[in-house]
């Protein structure tokens, strides 16, 4: 495939998320924290697993009996690909790859709602607003003022809580510093995970935990063969889990 190579110029910072599957208990705290942080409305009664707005979806996965049946959880947010299949398909540049951070941003106010990007994304990391967002009484008052409230008919997805990065930058600028303090930029899901299954940081910083985890050879990417170069990595000590999660979905067995 012509896109097997990583992009010619990697971003200045590479914000990276590492998910340790051994630690994930499937509690869903990450998704709840994400929803609160990003003003994601509660799913309407009629919605199904496939029609709600979910930025951080925790999949429950059971390996077949032939492979020693076991159940685990795989949290899948936007994989923040360095070679994203979604950016080029958007007809009106409502998706942008930030060359400074490597974050793939979705601009909901520019989105037409054609859903082509959802078709293009092999990770199904996007949600479409099938309903108008509605908050239970009183809850609207607790919305996060740093994040816009989307409307019906647009596509959205995880952006590594980029508003927190902006806040960290503002803080650094106020203190006269050129770079942010890594401790100031942590996405809501990472913050909320009670079992510390999620690690986050800038992989270009050799001191960071994520740089070490990504480099130790124990981490893998989902659908790596597609050449999308995600910045979300997964770890598991179980070789069966590693092997199964490295495949493409159409490969049965």
């Amino acid at each position: 495939m012509h896109t097997q190579k990583p992009p010619s110029s990697l971003p200045a910072h590479r914000y990276t998320l590492v998910v340790d599957l051994d630690r994930c208990t499937g509690c869903g705290s990450c998704g709840t924290a994400c929803a609160v942080e990003n003003n994601i409305p509660p799913a309407p009664e009629r919605s199904t697993e496939r029609t709600g707005v979910v930025w951080m979806r925790v999949h429950e996965v059971t390996t077949p009996a032939t492979a020693g049946e076991r159940t685990g959880f795989v949290p899948i947010p936007c994989q923040q690909c360095d070679n994203p299949p979604c950016v080029d398909v958007c007809p009106q540049r409502a998706i942008e790859y930030d060359p400074r951070t490597g974050i793939v941003g979705q601009i909901p106010v520019r989105c037409l709602g054609c859903r082509y990007c959802m078709v293009a994304c092999p990770y199904h990391a996007r949600s479409f607003n099938w309903w108008s967002p509605e908050w239970p009484e009183g809850m609207a008052a607790s919305l996060n003022p740093d994040v816009s409230v989307r409307q019906r008919g647009v596509v959205e997805k995880c952006n590594f809580c980029v508003q927190r990065l902006q806040a960290a930058r503002a803080k650094a600028a106020a203190a006269g510093k050129a770079e942010i303090d890594p401790a100031d930029y942590v996405p809501a899901c990472v913050e909320a995970c009670p079992s510390r299954a999620l690690s986050f940081g800038d992989a270009t910083d050799p001191e960071s935990e994520v740089a070490r985890l990504v480099a130790d050879g124990e981490s893998f990417q989902l659908l790596a063969a597609l050449g999308t170069h995600p910045k979300v990595w997964y770890r598991s000590s179980d070789p069966v889990v590693r092997e199964r999660l490295s495949r493409t979905g159409v490969m049965r067995g």
Partner: peptide, 23 residues
């Protein structure tokens, strides 16, 4: 009818991504 925000259809002409087949 298929697009979620038909009133934004003109955005494609205003902010075209010429790399997109849909454009």
């Amino acid at each position: 009818v298929d697009v979620g925000q038909p009133l934004r259809a003109w955005f494609t002409f205003w902010h075209p991504n010429v790399h997109s087949m849909l454009t």
